[in-house]
Nucleic acid binder design. Structure first.
Length: 508
RNA sequence: GACCCGGUAGCUCAGCUGGUAGAGCAACGGACUUUUAAUCCGUAGGUCGUGGGUUCGAGACCCACCCGGGUCACCA
């Protein structure tokens, strides 16, 4: 307590003063009758209908919120109260509240939760305001929130924040403070929730069954990534946090649950940057009797519906781009697009020629890159950035897609697509490999890579092969990075801005 | 993991080729009964990320480390 700085000490002193005056600083409840938006709305309705009382007052209301601005003027004071619906101005007068009720306002601070009752009116400056005739402290704030001052530009109505809370590290570490002072951050997470519930709604309506598969697994698989390890004490064995849902969901297809999906946290033990958080949210679905063509059609309908429900239109802004999700989306065969960009047929180029082309562009980290990786790098550098509007990139070379069925009639390609928007991959899908003999061979190839030191190569999953041996019908499967999809729809440049508590190093 | 940028008051930042730390906002005291980035007068507030080193003297220069942001690589 001794080392509390001045600002904190003053608030503790106010807390003590409140108790001395018999004011409970932490209330148990408060009955509110309206939100800030409802008060404003009903006042404006009454105003339009000419139903205002003498003096221009609308009806009484009780509302609760956080004090976010305070302007005191001696015998009167203005404050802004913020609740989940927005902000509204409060007006306190000494002649209304009395000596004590007005004097006790001195013990309030920015950040305090306050319940007020009063009547709405319009000030000389034209702002709908609640004239407070009684107030209740709901929770005293003992630590100052980093409020900026908000200026509303008179011409544009734009909100300009002065001296706000800008330190990104502090914003992520203390997300509660970030949310408390940034209504727009709260809105990002409302958008996120909306996107996820619309994804569910779409898949539910299509007859998919939502399932839950293990996050804690004895063997991980379904993607190329390093896992997190943990330990189960009673079983005395190492367990892994899942890196993908894929293999469990396809086991369910084998079992006859012919349309399944899962929205879950996956965990990958990899670097952290603006597109990667070690735990992230993945949507995967699998549909029996369908191939990748069917899934393209389904993805197209899903994207259009979710965007329309979230934005109320098929167009939205992302950074500098105006994205339009008008079907049919563009389709681009990967090899065609890359051949055009290179002005040479990719499939006829040798590995060595591919490497020379990549080196000529001074693409980094080419050491040890195989054919698939070279193609992927060239595509990433030459074609991806151009894919701003929704575009299906299809028929990837076999080297790039060990989990997809071969393309009918073109065995060097696979039946796979990725949907790109704003230059990033959002969906990835295959006609799923359902031949257990082929699957075993591919697992064994992975095992060789693993033995050679590739930590991301997959292990042989004998149980999964057994499942395939019972018979898996032809199946189309789709995976989507939910956080990245939310980034697009909420116009956020970093994955940390769509995850409430992104992973940071510990700060002790 | 590599490279670049950053960490100074509760918040946002300034601090020159090294000379014992500044502003605005917030806070505190005072004036002000329709203000709105309220205004005006006054006061107080700092282990300069951490630890070493160079120097008569380090917020600044050197080394190491911690934390964050960005770019690249892997991936969604």
């Amino acid at each position: 307590m001794e080392d509390l700085n001045q600002v904190l000490r003053v608030r503790r002193e106010k807390l003590a003063a409140l108790s001395e005056r018999g004011i409970e600083p932490f209330a148990y409840n408060f009955t509110r009758t309206a939100t800030s938006a409802e008060v404003r709305g009903s006042f404006e309705d009454a105003e339009r209908a000419g139903r205002l009382e003498e003096g221009g007052y609308g009806g009484r209301a009780a509302l609760g919120g956080r004090i976010v601005a305070w302007r005191s003027h001696g015998k009167s004071a203005f404050a802004n109260l913020e609740d989940a619906a927005g902000r509204i101005q409060l007006y306190f007068r000494k002649d209304v509240l009395g000596e004590a009720g007005f004097g006790d306002l001195d013990l309030l601070d920015l950040g305090d939760w306050l319940g007020v009752e009063g009547t709405a009116f319009r000030t000389r400056m034209g702002e709908v305001t609640v004239r407070v005739d009684s107030w209740t402290l709901l929770a005293k704030s003992l630590r100052p929130l980093p409020f900026g001052k908000v200026e509303v530009a008179p011409d544009t109505g734009e909100h300009i924040v002065h001296s706000g809370f800008a330190d990104t590290e502090a914003r992520y570490r203390q997300r509660y403070a970030d949310l408390a002072v940034h209504p727009e951050v709260r809105n990002v997470f409302r958008t996120r929730a909306r996107v996820i519930s619309e994804l569910r709604r779409f898949l539910d309506d299509e007859g998919f069954l939502e399932v839950e598969t293990p996050a804690l697994q004895p063997l991980y698989g379904g993607a190329s990534a390093r896992p997190f390890l943990t330990r189960h004490n009673a079983l005395d064995r190492t367990m892994y946090l899942r890196i993908a849902d894929e293999l469990y969901l396809k086991r369910l297809i084998v079992g006859g649950l012919d349309r399944v999906y899962e929205i879950s946290k996956d965990f990958r033990n990899e670097g952290i940057d603006r597109f990667h958080n070690p735990e992230f949210t993945m949507l995967e679905w699998y549909q029996a009797f369908s191939d990748y063509e069917d899934q393209m059609e389904l993805v197209e309908r899903l994207v259009v519906q979710v965007v329309e429900r979230v934005h109320g239109s098929r167009a939205f802004r992302f950074g500098e781009h105006e994205i339009r999700v008008d079907p049919p989306f563009g389709r681009l065969r990967l090899v065609d697009a890359l051949s055009a960009a290179l002005a040479q047929d990719v499939l006829s180029l040798t590995d060595r020629e591919l490497r020379e082309r990549a080196q000529a562009m001074s693409l980094p980290d080419l050491d040890g890159a195989g054919r698939g990786k070279l193609i992927d790098k060239l595509f990433g550098a030459l074609v991806e950035p151009e894919l701003v509007q929704p575009t299906f990139v299809i028929d990837h070379p076999k080297e790039l897609s060990p989990l997809a069925k071969p393309k009918r009639g073109e065995p060097r390609l696979t039946e796979r697509f990725e949907l790109y928007m704003a230059g990033t991959e959002v969906f990835n899908a295959f006609s799923e490999l359902n031949d257990p003999v082929d699957q075993r061979e591919r697992f064994e190839a992975q095992a060789e890579l693993r033995a050679a030191g590739d930590e991301e190569a997959q292990a042989i999953d004998e149980d999964y092969i057994r499942a395939l041996e019972y018979g898996m019908p032809p199946t189309g499967g789709v995976g989507m990075g939910v956080d990245r999809f939310v980034m697009l729809l909420a116009n956020q440049a970093s994955i940390r801005d769509v995850i409430l508590f992104p992973i940071l190093r510990t700060d002790e």
